[in-house]
Deep mutational scan, measured.
Amino acid sequence: NCLEGLIFVITGVLESIERDEAKSLIERYGGKVTGNVSKKTNYLVMGRDSGQSKSDKAAALGTKIIDEDGLLNLI
């Protein structure tokens, strides 16, 4: 459970895995996936064609922004 207690938001199109697979992977390792960035969000996983508003909010809140490889490296 290397992601225990961590909260993730996924945005954009992921290249190597589907969004549902990424969500399942995060949950399997103890993390939680939500739909919107908040002060409780630990990581924003940004894929291709992701919206600017979520990354702006993450930056404003100090949320770590990672890509798909960054997510896989956490596991």
Results as ranks from 00 to 15, higher is better:
N1S: 06
C2T: 07
C2D: 09
L3E: 03
L3T: 00
L3F: 10
L3K: 04
L3C: 03
L3H: 00
L3D: 04
E4M: 01
E4N: 12
G5V: 01
G5H: 02
G5E: 03
L6H: 04
L6V: 05
L6Y: 06
I7L: 11
I7Q: 15
I7E: 15
I7A: 10
F8I: 02
F8A: 00
F8P: 03
V9K: 03
V9E: 05
V9A: 12
T11I: 05
T11E: 14
T11R: 10
G12D: 08
G12C: 02
V13Q: 15
V13C: 11
L14S: 04
L14A: 05
E15A: 11
E15D: 15
E15P: 15
E15V: 08
S16Y: 07
S16M: 09
S16E: 09
I17L: 15
E18Q: 14
E18Y: 01
R19M: 14
R19K: 11
D20W: 08
D20M: 09
D20T: 12
D20S: 13
E21G: 06
E21S: 11
E21W: 05
E21T: 09
A22L: 15
A22G: 03
K23A: 09
K23M: 10
K23V: 14
S24W: 07
S24P: 02
L25T: 05
L25P: 05
I26N: 04
E27H: 08
R28H: 13
R28I: 04
Y29T: 02
G30V: 11
V33F: 05
T34P: 00
T34E: 15
G35V: 13
G35E: 15
G35A: 14
N36Y: 13
N36L: 10
N36K: 15
V37R: 00
V37L: 14
V37M: 10
V37T: 02
V37H: 03
V37Y: 04
V37S: 01
S38K: 01
S38R: 02
K39C: 07
K39M: 10
K39D: 10
K39H: 14
K40F: 07
K40W: 07
K40C: 08
K40Y: 12
T41Q: 00
T41P: 02
N42S: 08
Y43N: 02
L44K: 00
L44N: 03
L44I: 14
M46C: 13
M46R: 12
M46N: 04
G47A: 08
R48E: 04
R48H: 07
R48C: 05
D49K: 13
D49S: 11
D49W: 07
S50M: 08
S50T: 10
S50W: 12
S50G: 15
G51A: 15
Q52P: 13
Q52L: 10
S53P: 08
D56W: 08
D56L: 12
K57F: 10
A58D: 07
A58K: 06
A59R: 14
A59Q: 09
L61M: 12
L61Q: 08
G62A: 05
G62I: 02
T63G: 04
T63H: 05
T63P: 08
K64F: 01
K64A: 08
I65P: 04
I66T: 06
D67S: 09
E68N: 04
E68C: 09
E68D: 05
D69E: 13
D69T: 14
D69N: 13
G70S: 05
G70W: 03
L71S: 02
L71I: 03
L72D: 04
L72M: 12
N73F: 04
N73P: 01
N73H: 08
L74R: 03
L74D: 02
I75A: 01
I75T: 03
